[in-house]
Design a protein around this nucleic acid. Structure first.
Length: 741
DNA sequence: TCGGCACAAATTTTT
DNA sequence: TTTGTGCCGA
């Protein structure tokens, strides 16, 4: 293996194969190249067997890419080597040995919507109000407990003085019991149970320890505590652990990623060799200067400074638009111009935003200009109702203990098994600590159901029974067709030829082709493996930005990608940084937003636009906007202001900013409660200041539709206002919110 | 059991 | 604005 094409640091990272290595890989510094080269170096130059190598990533996409690149470097296929995501790696381990900790080896994997249903069930069973214990909040609490490897019991013990959390611990406990009864694991469990298995079974752990004598982890800044522990257990003996990541790109803290994992790697392992990859092969120096400057405002980070050989570059263009429609038109116009003049394809251009809701006006503008685009994110294929229904059937066929799936389809299509009957079945299942399926199999012995209901249930059991028999003889794709026919699902959709239903039928057909594809590509073609592969591959093979389309996505989604031209839109306080982070008493929330901004900026190779508005309508409410602090943090020499609106609002009396000022002032001196009180008082004051009851001629005001204007006259509650560029209008202040400027 | 209506809520989402 | 949810009457 030739290492000539690497720079000094990259080469160091590749050649240092023994002992713990931390590679701090800045954006665009070629870390995938380093990782793949390192693997090949181990095999070719160091004679390590692929069998002993484990490479872990977060996404399937990253895993596939790495596998492909290694394959082409090695010039041979190698399936002894594990290059996989945390989750699929854990599934593989669990499928082999999870029975050792009392679970069924053919477990199903619950996704977030299954989780939600199950939590709702648990709340009902515990007689808890779902307004007080909002299911989503409960899930995220449980999930974060799991990320920290807290069992229900530990979680309870830790929060003994907190009533709410004590209750949540109870829900958590029941939730785990129900999962187990259904032979199901949620995504978090995949990691947690693997760690549990390792801790309780010396010989299992020993096997993998001996096997994986070289471990590499990609995107280490995104690991949770549980994932950290998983890796630590495996690397304990040989210590040949190489982690790659960028603390500045840690943007999934809200999802359990613990930035301490990377910040404290050097403390957690002995004699860590650290390599910083700071040469960037993507962007111009102007863009990197801007990114470096913005991120330097974060305190919790490892110092890094990206540099590039691309010394020349266009300045970052900043545009202030009137509102989001205006902003969208600006984006569309410029995309059109750029694509014409500079010989740039549409697929070279991305529009990035903080929140999905911002895509709407952009879409409208692009449509108007006939510019093709794809939106990333949105409703996923596997989340569609018809697909979920079909999947539920398949899961029940594979694993009848799966109550959540069973409940989903027991009356779909409608076969006269109503809510009452289902409830009775559930109660009985609960009583006997068994699955619902075992209850309905011997429904005869159940006396409190009507003969009619019993008959329907028996029919349902027969359908499932016959499908289970078919599973043994048919390939998955054929089985799916049988499911659709036998259950009458397709028939039901065909009855009513609405467009919606035709779409659904199309999707189901698409699903059949996915199954055929699976059969073609997999070694293990059984239903269990099919279901696993679907659970673990939520990203439907996005058509590889093949042809000529502008990409629209959130900044989160853009991580890891690059585009010659990037538009970062909505650079406004309370949108980016998002209001939650601004309002929170926690500076680390702002730091995460700033890292997100850093990620956004570093997506651009050559040209970067940043846009903001003077007033924005979001969720049907219009409010004046304030330019983002991240805009203010950009170095002057890197930016070019495209317009300088006369009435630009640079600073407002907006309560959040007031709050922010106070936050900084008091951050270190007083406790949170006092701070909160102070802040509330200040907000009240700010609101009073904005009281429009004593408005008078000459006052500058802001109107949600017409923008900034001057009051010229007033009569009762009717104001006459001269608006900038919009002329004189009469406004009734009783009906419109007008802000004093 | 379903459709209609009022009401509330609304970041980000690799698996 | 959009989207989901709960409740009520037919």
């Amino acid at each position: 293996m030739n290492l000539e094409s690497l720079n000094y640091e990259q080469r160091e990272a590749v050649e240092k194969t023994e002992g713990p290595v931390l590679i701090l890989a800045g954006a665009g510094s070629g870390k995938t190249k380093v990782l793949t080269t390192r693997i090949v170096h181990l095999i070719k130059n160091k004679n390590i067997s692929p069998f002993n190598i484990l490479a872990i990533t977060f996404t399937n996409k990253a895993a596939n890419e790495m596998r492909e690149r290694v394959k082409s470097l090695l010039k041979e296929d190698n399936d002894e080597m594990w290059i996989s995501t945390f989750h699929s790696c854990c599934v593989r381990i669990l499928r082999k040995d999870i029975n050792k900790i009392g679970y069924n080896r053919s477990f199903v994997i619950y996704d977030s919507s299954d989780q939600l249903t199950l939590i709702k069930d648990c709340l009902k069973e515990l007689n808890l109000n779902d307004k007080v214990f909002e299911p989503r909040a409960v899930i995220s609490e449980i999930s974060s407990a799991k990320d920290k490897l807290l069992s229900p019991k530990k979680y309870k013990d830790m929060n003994i003085s907190d009533n709410r959390k004590t209750k949540i611990a109870e829900i958590y406990k029941l939730y785990q019991e129900r999962l187990k009864r259904s032979s199901a694991l949620d995504f978090d469990d995949l990691i947690v149970k693997t760690v549990e298995l390792f801790k309780e079974n010396e010989e299992v752990l020993e096997y993998y320890r001996n096997r994986f004598s070289y471990i590499m982890v990609d995107e280490y800044q995104d690991t949770s505590r549980a994932q950290y522990e998983f890796i630590r257990l495996l690397a304990k003996n040989h210590q040949n652990i190489c982690v790659v990541g960028d603390d500045d790109q840690s943007i999934y803290g809200w999802r359990g990623a613990d930035i301490r994992n990377i910040l404290e790697f050097e403390k957690d392992y002995d004699n860590v060799h650290t390599v910083k990859l700071e040469q960037n092969y993507r962007s111009t120096q102007v863009i990197l200067d801007a990114a470096n400057k913005v991120i330097s405002n974060n305190i919790e980070r490892k110092r890094k400074k990206l540099w590039s050989e691309k010394k020349e570059g266009e300045k970052i263009k900043i545009q202030v638009s009137d509102d989001e429609i205006d902003e969208a038109n600006f984006v569309a116009d410029n995309i059109y111009k750029i694509s014409k003049k500079e010989n740039i394809k549409y697929s070279d251009i991305a529009v990035l935003y903080r929140a999905n809701a911002q895509a709407r006006p952009i879409e409208d503008a692009l449509n108007k200009s006939n510019i093709p685009y794809t939106i990333y994110g949105g409703v996923k294929f596997y989340e569609r109702k018809e697909i979920k229904d079909l999947l539920a059937y398949l899961r029940v066929i594979e694993n009848p203990q799966d109550d959540i799936s069973l409940k989903r389809i027991i009356n779909v299509p409608r076969r006269g098994i109503g809510l009452k009957s289902i409830e009775k079945i559930e109660d009985r299942a609960s009583l006997r600590q068994e699955s619902m399926y075992s209850v309905i199999v011997d429904i005869e012995s159940n006396s409190d159901l009507s003969p009619k209901a019993k008959k329907s249930i028996k029919e349902f059991v027969d359908i499932i029974g016959s499908l289970r028999a078919m599973k043994e003889v048919y390939p998955v794709s054929k089985l799916i067709e049988k499911v659709l026919k036998t259950t009458g699902y397709i028939e039901e959709l065909e009855k009513d030829k609405k467009d919606e239903n035709l779409d659904r039928i199309d999707n189901l057909k698409e699903f059949v082709s996915i199954a055929i594809e699976f059969e073609r590509n997999s070694k293990e073609k059984d239903l269990e493996n099919f279901l696993t592969s679907i659970s673990l591959n939520s990203d439907t093979d996005e058509e590889e930005n093949e042809n000529e389309k502008v990409s629209l996505m959130t900044i989160h989604t853009s991580k890891g990608l690059e585009f010659p031209v990037v538009f970062l839109i909505g650079m406004e306080e309370n949108l980016f940084p998002i209001s939650r982070a601004v309002k929170s008493m926690n500076e680390s929330d702002i730091e995460e937003e700033r890292r997100l901004c850093y990620v956004g900026i570093t997506r651009a190779k050559d040209i970067l636009y940043m846009t903001l508005t003077q007033r924005r309508t979001l969720y049907g409410k219009t409010a004046p906007s304030v330019s983002s602090r991240f805009i203010e943090e950009l170095p002057n020499e890197c930016i070019e202001k495209l317009n300088s609106p006369q009435n630009e609002i640079t600073y407002s009396k907006s309560s959040y900013n007031v709050l922010d000022k106070y936050k900084q002032k008091y951050m270190n001196s007083i406790n949170k409660q006092t701070l909160a009180k102070k802040v509330n008082a200040t907000i009240k004051e700010a609101e009073k200041e904005n009281d429009t009851s004593n408005i008078k001629a000459g006052d500058k005001v802001f109107h949600p539709k017409f923008g900034v204007g001057t009051v010229v006259g007033m009569m009762g509650s009717e104001l006459t206002i001269s608006f900038v560029n919009k002329g004189i209008k009469k406004i009734n202040k009783e009906y419109t919110t007008i802000d004093l400027l």
